[in-house]
Design a protein around this nucleic acid. Structure first.
Lengths: 203, 203, 203, 203
DNA sequence: CATGAATGAGTATTCATTCAT
DNA sequence: TATGAATGAATACTCATTCAT
């Protein structure tokens, strides 16, 4: 069984999230899994390797979701909506890991940090391209695809800080709301807000 | 002059951002300002106090912008657009401080962390209420104001991770794009994407 | 074996006595036992815990002696003489520990200092009560038992400052002399000193 | 005026007693006299010099009392009684200084410690000689003068630990009781305790 | 597989003292 | 006389990691 290694990883993830990477000691982790400090080293190479593994494991999930969605096809809007909902779901389900990833990835040595950043960048590019296709096809409004993508990712990723399973909204509802806001915008159609498009140039 | 204290604060902010709070040593800070470690303690009480001060100084900026915008009046859409642009601008201008705030605030002792979280919460509520007013007035579409607010804040705050003064987009442009996406949405009007509102429930 | 812990305790006791608690560094102790500073912390919690343990270990000895003497019974005078001899012996045999206890107990945190003071107080009370019984029974002269007790304890405890195993007097001899002075007094019977009882009122 | 220097000395003495020599910082002393740390050095050479001065000033008092008593003449018993009462009075009146002297004198550098120990030794010798004269003259019982002297000094000096101006006994009463115990002993005359003189050697 | 012992490198903080002003 | 600034040296304690058993 890899169960012991998994236990250690789980404990580390939880502790890293609760106390932060630096404030978590190998002692803490050892106690959490009922081993002695020294025994951890039978299963893991180092504290840093633990962080790296935790940081790495999530990016795969995001890519997998995107694979699924692209395979399913449909309009750009449909794919985009699905991507937003999927992303929200992944963040909600892996909040712990993502908290560690977002907060502590800079503690990784350059070489590893690079790898994590690479994966992140690839995911961003995939999403940006999807938007760019939509814009090119006239299906989406002529926004800057890069900026739009980062707005989406920001909205979704930021959840790592405020989402709570006990909160008012389910991941499902959050996904719906985010899709609403991002695809349709906040302005009521035909509303008086139309001129807000160019605030400061009001009549 | 308070210049020496300010110098220390500036050095700490920069180092905290580059290496993280824990990885930054008082030695690092001392070297950065050309003093001995011990001399730092003439100006600051502790490393933690340094973090606290850095963390605290930014929330004031956000509130000040919101004050200004609300005082200026206008439609909800206008105010919201202005708020987004202002927020983007503050993040761009205080990226260093905010990186520390977002990444390391959990390293603060509970009491101080509470204070910072309190300020953040207050800012979120102000923005949520603005959106709620717009929804009530029919100026904005009937979204959940809380979720919408968090989407906006996420989009803007996330910049702390990707914004670069050397990047492709200026804060001005980023603000414009974010306003576009959030107020008007990505979908082209009358486009085929209308049914994306409830993908999976399409006919 | 608990030998390593005991070694550390012994080294600390000796050093605390030689240089004082504050002037003794963990480095000193580590060198004395042939370990690295950090390794000490496998056996002890802190420098203060070391002091506490050293301070605590002696009071038990005094109480044990008193237990033994009271169990043996005899007249108050016999018990008192035995107590003085026992006290002198304990001080001589544990001079190092007692030096630390007497000199450094104020360095303990209030809570622990309280505990040590409590034990000391209990011992004083036991001795005072013995004297009080002797006075009540007419076996001892009508002195103030509290003051007499403190005189005895002072005479005996003060040894921590001047006793030396290489000195002129053995603990046995010191005990004998102290018993002489305290039980019988210095004045020669029938001597001219009788009026010294109330000097200043001499004829 | 030497008042500023005296103020500093007074503050140091009080603080050394309350917190111990090591635990008292120059900052503490500076605050107590309303100066800045650096300003203290206009009046004193060093923290250690402060301790030395405090330690030194008391021995003079003891000698002065002994001078007075010897000048007054009288029997050995009368002089001894007067010496005990005087010693008790000095301890009571200078408890603060003596606490520092007794507890911290080992913190002095060897050279200065030697000087203090020298004064102490001289005082002890004077008292021992007085007792020896009494023994030689048959006025005192044939005790070991050195041991008897140290018993007396122990009884009196130990007061530094337990005496309180608010306590049950006045210095006057303590002196009387000590004289009683030391000159006349605790045993009631003709009492059953006579055989206690040599417990263990009883028939 | 598990661990008790050991450690080297590091970390924030303290403090008596000096000195230019 | 007084002090704000500066510092060198020290100090207790921590922690990830290694290794013999």
């Amino acid at each position: 069984m890899a169960s012991r290694e998994q236990e250690i990883l789980d404990a580390a993830r939880k502790l890293f999230r609760q106390k932060g990477y630096y404030a978590t000691t190998m002692q803490d982790i050892a106690e959490a899994v009922g081993l002695q400090k020294a025994s951890l080293y039978h299963y893991i190479r180092s504290k840093e390797a633990l962080l790296l593994q935790i940081a790495g494991e999530t990016m795969r999930l995001f890519h997998a979701e995107l694979d699924r969605i692209e395979a399913a096809g449909g309009s750009v809007a449909q794919q985009l909506a699905a991507a937003i909902r999927a992303h929200v779901k992944v963040v909600a389900e892996h909040q712990e890991t993502l908290t560690v990833l977002f907060r502590e990835s800079h503690a990784l040595p350059p070489e590893h940090a690079e790898k994590v950043r690479g994966e992140t960048g690839r995911y961003t590019r995939r999403l940006t391209e999807l938007i760019a296709r939509g814009v090119a096809a006239g299906e989406l409004r002529p926004v800057d695809p890069g900026a739009a993508c980062l707005a989406i990712l920001g909205a979704c990723n930021w959840m790592y800080r405020w989402y709570s399973a006990d909160g008012r909204l389910t991941p499902q509802q959050i996904g719906d709301q985010f899709v609403e806001v991002i695809l349709h915008g906040l302005l009521a159609p035909g509303g008086a807000g139309r001129q807000a498009r160019t605030p400061g140039r009001a009549p």
